[in-house]
Every structure is written in structure tokens, then in C-alpha cells.
Amino acid sequence: MAVRVQSEDFDVGAELARLSAGTHAVGAVASFIGLVRESPGDVPLRALTLEHYPGMTERQLGAIEAEARRRWPLEAVLIVHRVGRLQPGERIVLVAAASRHRNAAFDACRFLVDRLKARAPFWKLEETATGSRWLEAGADDQRAAARWDGD
């Protein structure tokens, strides 16, 4: 399956190798890995908890994949997104696009990430020594997603 939501970590090498397994049509695989980063302020991040809307998440990710396939000639698409409590440094998400040529793979990968961040129903709860708070959506993410709307 090209879209997965799971609590366990994923093996980046194995996941990417699978995108071109059994075919010689793939000339390019572009990928993005999102990680839990430390907080910029004085209070260290203890953990990040990812909540999602089961059902709608898979539905939205499937729609995002279908839209990418309409826009670019893709041989394979992969989105793996983790949920649950993650420590700083842990992987959150893997997005990859495989195509015959690099431009389609690069562009589709960027599109998939931008759309996922704007539309897939996931929420991050930041946990520090002083308490927990839900992260607010950034205007940058909406702008990044909006730049694909006019195409």
C-alpha cells in the first residue's frame, strides 16, 4: 500500500528500495524525511505526540497521492506517517516519489509534502518540563500548499 499510518518506525532504505523493486522503469526516486526537532527556546522538548483522525487521514492521503499521479508521470508514490508519542530525533514521516526522470520525482515529492502538511488531519502536541501545548499551524505551510493551487 502506498499510504500508511503507523506507530512504529520505518526503515528508510528498505522503503525506498521497494519503490523500484521489480522494475527498470524508475530512473529517479526523490524523498523527504520529517524528524522531531528540539525546540528553539530555552525549554527542552521532551516528546511530540502525533494525533490523527483515523479514516479521514488515509482518505486525504489517498486523495493527495491521486492528485500527484494526475499531475506527474509517477511509477510509485509512498507516504508513511507515524502517530503516537515520539522523542526528539525520531522520524515522523517519509514521503517519496519515483518516476522515469528526476524533475517529476522532485516536484511530486515536494507537492506531496506541502499538501500533506496543509490537509492531512494530524496534530502535534508538544511536551516540555513546563507542560503540554498543541502546536499552531504555520502560515508558511498554507503558503507552501497554496503555490500548487494555480497549476
Binding site: 520529517g34 502525533l50 490523527h52 502538511k117 496534530w123 499551524a137 505551510d141
Partner: peptide, 10 residues
């Protein structure tokens, strides 16, 4: 019907 804040995944 689901109600939620703007999403923050990825």
C-alpha cells in the same frame, strides 16, 4: 462530523 484545529502534521 468532525471538528478540529488547523492541521500540523508532517
Amino acid at each position: 462530523v468532525a471538528l478540529f484545529p488547523p492541521v500540523t502534521g508532517g
